[in-house]
Design a protein around this nucleic acid. Structure first.
Lengths: 150, 150
DNA sequence: CCATCCGGCGCAACTCTGTTGCATCTGGCA
DNA sequence: TGCCAGATGCAACAGAGTTGCGCCGGATGG
């Protein structure tokens, strides 16, 4: 039954994704819809590789995936961040977008989670500096890894 | 005269660097001393490339530089962070080390500055998550770029 | 209904950053 | 001074991301 439920949810999510894409004036291609849908359903920042895996069946060309991701970021539908291993990670952008973001990176499994935590008050900057974005980066162990072997 | 002053300062800084290195029990080789001295004199997080440039005369082998940097990080004398362009940036570690860090990245010139700003209070995490490091990442315009063309 | 056009796709080749293997050299101690 | 584990230098490799270019397929106009 979960299968049926997921299938229904998937279809609905795919619709939403396609809508968001068309709203930008661009074509809602299968690759774009599938990637955006995936990002919007996963509460984590995924790498190009993880997305490639997750999309699984009907594989998308490596380059196409990069281009889709670039496009999503440019259109404001997704965020891009380099993780500690210097690999880009992508996450869906919230609808009413904010300029602050909080990530939690698990030091055991390497996964990155997007948190909704309220951004901290920006610290005072040196003379002449002006702030436009703020990002809080947390590291530690995620729920799944707590209590596991080192 | 600034030249003379800088030369004197450099020598003193080199001594300090060598001392810090020997204190870890390792050999104070020229490459290590030069890199650590540079990092300690620059209030910014530099890339491998920038360090290579800055060291200029008496060029250091690419690989050696990577190894020196790795060693500095392992010894706790430096920090490594992947920047937005997914390039590692290195900065000197403060002597009494902390597990929180604040960076300011200029969106115009790309430079990264290490700030001393007090770390914000960590937000509440989802059940099962535990925190070990915290890092605040700011983006905007640095003093040098404020008022410049886009 | 067909011709055309343009955005998006796939392949291949490339760049850039960082890593590994191995032979050679050297700082600092006996 | 002589030794040798630890550093260095060279070359070759690996992973992530980018660029160039031809092709296809959906939209558009006649």
């Amino acid at each position: 039954m979960t299968v049926v439920k997921n299938a229904v949810e998937s279809a609905a999510e795919a619709e939403t994704a396609a809508l968001l894409i068309r709203r930008t004036g661009a074509r809602a291609t299968p690759a774009r819809v599938r990637v955006l849908r995936l990002l919007r359903m996963v509460p984590a920042a995924l790498t190009h590789h993880e997305i490639e895996q997750a999309i699984g069946d009907l594989p998308v060309d490596r380059v196409t995936l990069y281009r889709v991701l670039d496009w999503l970021v440019e259109s404001g539908l997704a965020h891009r961040n380099a993780d500690a291993q210097r690999v880009f990670r992508f996450s869906a952008a919230a609808i009413g977008e904010h300029s602050a973001h909080t990530h939690f990176r698990c030091e055991n499994c390497g996964r990155v989670f997007c948190l909704d935590a309220a951004p901290p008050a920006p610290p005072s900057l040196p003379e002449g500096f002006s702030l436009s974005h703020l990002e809080l980066d947390l590291r530690g162990r995620c729920a799944g890894c707590t209590g596991e072997h080192r």
